[in-house]
Amino acid sequence: MFVDGEFLAFPKALQGAGPLAFTADHRNLIVGGLENGPEGRPARTYYLNGTRVAQFSSQAVSSFGTTMGQPQPWEMQPDGSVLFIGAEPTGLFGGQMKRITVSPDSGTSVATWIADAQAAQKKAVEDAAAAAAKAKADKDAAAAAKAKEREEAIAAKEKARQEALDARKKALEERAAAREKARAEAEAARAAKKKQPQ
């Protein structure tokens, strides 16, 4: 629905939603429809400026207005309040009959309903964008962590390979040194033996 050129979305859970009437000062709008009650059954539900104010069994009194001569179960009062009547939304056919009087808050109106709806929509868009940005940041962080882990694994493997090469080189050098020492000692022994008198 559009009010003064501004889009006004009805509550999403309200089925068959429709405007019923403005209050006498044209500031407040009553909307009615069916919504699941506390026991999960469809209940006749009323909203005033986007806020749920009354909920009754849909079995006991089913009319929203004066269709085909049926009495409407709500009525504007001279003081600006709205009187709703219906059975409690309990059991198969409703509970006790109740009268609920709702006085519109002076600080709320259709205009505040529209503003609140627009703010909620803006916040939903911002929250979705923030969630998408966070998801992207988390994905990037996970990719960076995985890349770092891969780099560390490669570095560790290279380090282990280099250490193995160094150890092998050292072992070869020590073996060559040991052979050279043994050869030098053998030559020294032979030279000493030749110097001995015959």
Rank of each mutant, 00 (worst) to 15 (best):
1 M>V: 08
2 F>V: 08
7 F>M: 10
9 A>R: 08
10 F>Q: 12
11 P>Y: 08
18 G>M: 11
20 L>D: 04
22 F>L: 14
24 A>F: 10
27 R>T: 02
33 G>F: 04
34 L>V: 06
35 E>F: 02
39 E>A: 06
39 E>H: 08
41 R>C: 05
43 A>S: 15
46 Y>G: 00
48 L>D: 05
49 N>L: 01
55 Q>D: 08
56 F>P: 11
58 S>Y: 03
61 V>C: 11
61 V>S: 09
61 V>T: 15
62 S>Y: 06
63 S>F: 12
64 F>M: 11
68 M>A: 04
68 M>I: 01
68 M>Y: 10
69 G>R: 05
70 Q>I: 01
79 D>A: 04
88 E>F: 07
92 L>R: 14
99 R>E: 15
99 R>K: 11
101 T>F: 07
102 V>P: 01
103 S>V: 12
103 S>M: 13
107 G>A: 09
109 S>A: 10
110 V>I: 15
110 V>R: 14
111 A>C: 02
112 T>R: 11
112 T>S: 15
114 I>F: 11
122 K>C: 06
123 K>C: 00
126 E>F: 03
127 D>P: 00
129 A>M: 10
130 A>G: 05
134 K>V: 01
139 K>T: 12
140 D>S: 06
140 D>V: 05
143 A>Q: 14
143 A>D: 15
145 A>F: 02
149 E>T: 05
149 E>Y: 03
150 R>L: 09
151 E>G: 01
153 A>W: 14
154 I>A: 15
154 I>L: 13
155 A>R: 15
155 A>Q: 12
155 A>C: 02
159 K>S: 08
161 R>M: 02
161 R>H: 08
163 E>A: 13
164 A>C: 01
164 A>W: 04
165 L>E: 09
166 D>V: 02
170 K>S: 12
171 A>H: 09
174 E>H: 01
174 E>I: 02
176 A>I: 03
183 R>P: 00
184 A>Q: 12
185 E>K: 12
186 A>H: 00
187 E>T: 02
187 E>H: 04
188 A>R: 14
188 A>K: 13
196 Q>H: 06
